[in-house]
């Protein structure tokens, strides 16, 4: 009886160490790389803005969404009378990897790379945004995005108008 009581703590220790070891192994297997977790979704739209003939961009192009048009009309410095949507791309925001948005699926003339600079805080996400034109990095921005507050970048001139990149935070993972 006395011997049983002496062995009991040793057995308990062995059990505890086994459980913690198994738990650690399971953690390693399930969380191999948390950097690939999505912390939200980002939509990048390429818009052609002009005060002239909007068909210069292409005859079959659609108009931006109503929400985008309202946002474009309310801008203070970027002001055009006509807009056309050249393309859009919605991508998950990987926690610690560089992400790419390619709004015009077939053309890689205008690209945007983005990477979170930290965890989302109170609906805000600080991001490293890079604007690429003709395979060259043109601009690097440390922008703080939040849902409902898009970022517009007025880019290069083209066919009598300007290329506008609209960056919108569509969703954000729970903090």
């Amino acid at each position: 009886m006395k011997r049983t009581f002496q062995i009991f703590p040793i057995l308990l220790l062995i059990m505890l160490s086994s459980v913690s070891s198994l738990s650690a192994q399971a953690k390693v297997k399930t969380n191999l790389d948390r950097g690939t977790d999505s912390v939200g979704e980002l939509k990048v739209s390429l818009i052609f803005g002009t005060n002239g003939d909007v068909d210069q961009a292409g005859k079959d192009l659609k108009s931006p969404s109503k929400a985008q048009l309202v946002a474009l009309k309310n801008l203070k410095t970027i002001k055009f009378t006509n807009y056309r949507l050249l393309g859009e791309d919605q991508q998950p925001i990987l926690r610690s990897y560089e992400n790419w948005a390619n709004p015009m699926k077939s053309s890689k003339e205008i690209l945007l790379s983005f990477q979170p600079l930290g965890n989302p805080i109170s609906g805000h996400l600080k991001m490293d945004l890079e604007f690429w034109q003709s395979h060259e990095k043109i601009m690097k921005s440390g922008a703080t995005l939040k849902k409902g507050k898009p970022l517009f970048i007025q880019g290069p001139a083209w066919r009598g108008g300007k290329i506008i990149i609209a960056v919108e935070l569509m969703s954000l993972a729970k903090e």
Partner: peptide, 14 residues
């Protein structure tokens, strides 16, 4: 409050 705008001047046109 509604948006952030960045105007890039001096870019090579496409």
């Amino acid at each position: 409050n509604e948006a952030t705008e960045i105007i890039l001047n001096g870019l090579n046109p496409i």
